[in-house]
Each structure stands twice: as structure tokens, then as C-alpha cells.
């Protein structure tokens, strides 16, 4: 079984930044990503609040950080982590394709869009359901669409779609879906992707990994970074900051 000093779960901004710090500390590190590097930010076209890069796209930014981590010696592989267990040598990481051993763990699994309720999904019938207006909006040029949600994201999705669709309905998470809407755009918040780690660390009632600014979880040797941690502000820079803190604490733990 392959052994690493640190295994990072998730190659979003938090996970990749942690990989940079662990590599620079001279430890071996593997980042395991279940879908695609970059995380949520790859859906954003124009980022204006990442210092040093004005109007960079999420795709470009995440590619740059990915290459930086790789260039510093981090290994990055695509495998879905299903379970992590405490063993005498550290932690056994069970993924879909392989198993690994690590001295310390950093959970940087991020958050996924909250799915449309069953009632509204039924209501939508065969109509496409999208969680990303900037990805799919243009497929509904001149057609009526609906946005579900009441937060800031929903507002942004509406503004974006107003320039494309013939009509943009706005409904809340328990309203009926308008009959003539040809696609349903959903922005009803996010849920942390921590389901596989409920036995490993303490989660709060909403599923976030409980940890303070030191990124230490309830389990010694397991650290958490980014949007899946209990915290007030979830931004690119705070995800990156968490990555640095979690990596430093993980290296300190290993000694």
C-alpha cells in the first residue's frame, strides 16, 4: 500500500493550497480528488476578489494552482475517497480504485449544490435541471426559464439569465414550477460533502466539520480546510488561508 506523510482529500483551492504548503515543508503528499480539480470556483468566469489576478477565470486560476502544487512535488490523483480509518501507523484511506496510508489527513472536500426538493423535481418532469447558469444558460437563448432560490447566488443567476432567456421566473424552494419554463436553474444553497467522514470527525448539525481557525478536528491527526469547515466566511482567500493553516498544523503533528 502506498504511504504518504499527508493525504489531502479534495483538490479545490483549500486542498491545493494545503498541498503547496505540505510539499514546501518537505513532506510527501497525495491529493485525492473525486471529480475535477478547482472545486466550485471552476464555474465562475470572472473572479475579481483574488489578490494579484484581476478578472481571472476560475478554470484558469485552478489550473495555475494545480500546476504550482504539482511543480512543488505534490502527487495529485483522481479517486473517490470512501472511508478513512484510524490505524496504528496513522490512517488508512480507502478510495474507489485504491487504498493508501497517511500519517495525517486534511479534509478539503468542499460543498456541493443543494439538490432540488423531490416535489419540485417531480414538478420539473422531463425539463432539464441545472445548478450552473453560466454553464447552461446559453442553451436556453430566447426561451423562458425559472430560477429557484432566495439567496445571493439565485440573484446572480437571475441577473445572468435575464440577458439570455426570454423570461426569467423567480420562485422559492417550495413554490410550484411555472408550466412554460423550459429549464430549471437551482440555487438553494450548498451542502458540505462530508458524508463519508461522519465516523472520522465530529460534524455539526448541517454536516460541516467542527473546527476552529486552527483547522484541528475532533480527531488528532485529521485537519480540515475550506468550505467544509464550520466558519463564518467562505471565500477563495479564506479557503486558501485554511489550506496553509491545516498544512502547517498537519506537519507539526507529524513532527
Amino acid at each position: 500500500m502506498k504511504k504518504y506523510d499527508v493525504i489531502i482529500v479534495g483538490a479545490g483551492i483549500a486542498g491545493l493550497t494545503a498541498a503547496i504548503y505540505v510539499s514546501r515543508a518537505g513532506k510527501s503528499v497525495l491529493v485525492l480528488e473525486s471529480t475535477m480539480q478547482g472545486g466550485q470556483i471552476i464555474n465562475t468566469i470572472n473572479i475579481e476578489n483574488w489578490p494579484g489576478d484581476f478578472k481571472v477565470s476560475g478554470a484558469e486560476l485552478s489550473q495555475k494552482i494545480y500546476k504550482q502544487a504539482e511543480g512543488l512535488g505534490a502527487e495529485i490523483d483522481f479517486d473517490n475517497v470512501e472511508k478513512i480509518e484510524k490505524i496504528t501507523e496513522g490512517f488508512r484511506v480507502v478510495a474507489e480504485d485504491d487504498e493508501y496510508i497517511a500519517g495525517a489527513i486534511i479534509l478539503a472536500v468542499g460543498a456541493d449544490p443543494r439538490k432540488l426538493s423531490e416535489k419540485q423535481t417531480q414538478d420539473a418532469g422531463k425539463r432539464p435541471i441545472s445548478y450552473c447558469a453560466t454553464c447552461d444558460g446559453a442553451l436556453y437563448k430566447g426561451k423562458p426559464v425559472v430560477v429557484v432560490g432566495s439567496g445571493n447566488t439565485a440573484k446572480h443567476e437571475m441577473e445572468y439569465l435575464q440577458n439570455i432567456a426570454s423570461k426569467v421566473y423567480h420562485i422559492h424552494h417550495d413554490d410550484p414550477i411555472p408550466e412554460d419554463a423550459e429549464a430549471v436553474f437551482v440555487a438553494i444553497g450548498r451542502v458540505p460533502a462530508t458524508g463519508n467522514f461522519a465516523d472520522l470527525v465530529d460534524l455539526d448539525e448541517r454536516g460541516y466539520v467542527v473546527a476552529g481557525e486552527d483547522c484541528k478536528t475532533s480527531t488528532p491527526g485529521v485537519f480540515v480546510a475550506g468550505d467544509c469547515r464550520t466558519k463564518e466566511i467562505r471565500q477563495l482567500v479564506t479557503a486558501a488561508a485554511d489550506g496553509a493553516v491545516a498544512a502547517t498544523e498537519a506537519c507539526r503533528y507529524l513532527g
Partner: peptide, 14 residues
């Protein structure tokens, strides 16, 4: 794909 789609940009090198 489309040029304005972030995940599509990610897929280009892949």
C-alpha cells in the same frame, strides 16, 4: 462545449 463555460475550459487539456 462553449467558450464561456468554466468546466468546459477545464476539459480542454483533458
Amino acid at each position: 462545449y462553449a467558450d464561456w463555460c468554466g468546466p468546459c475550459q477545464m476539459m480542454k487539456p483533458v
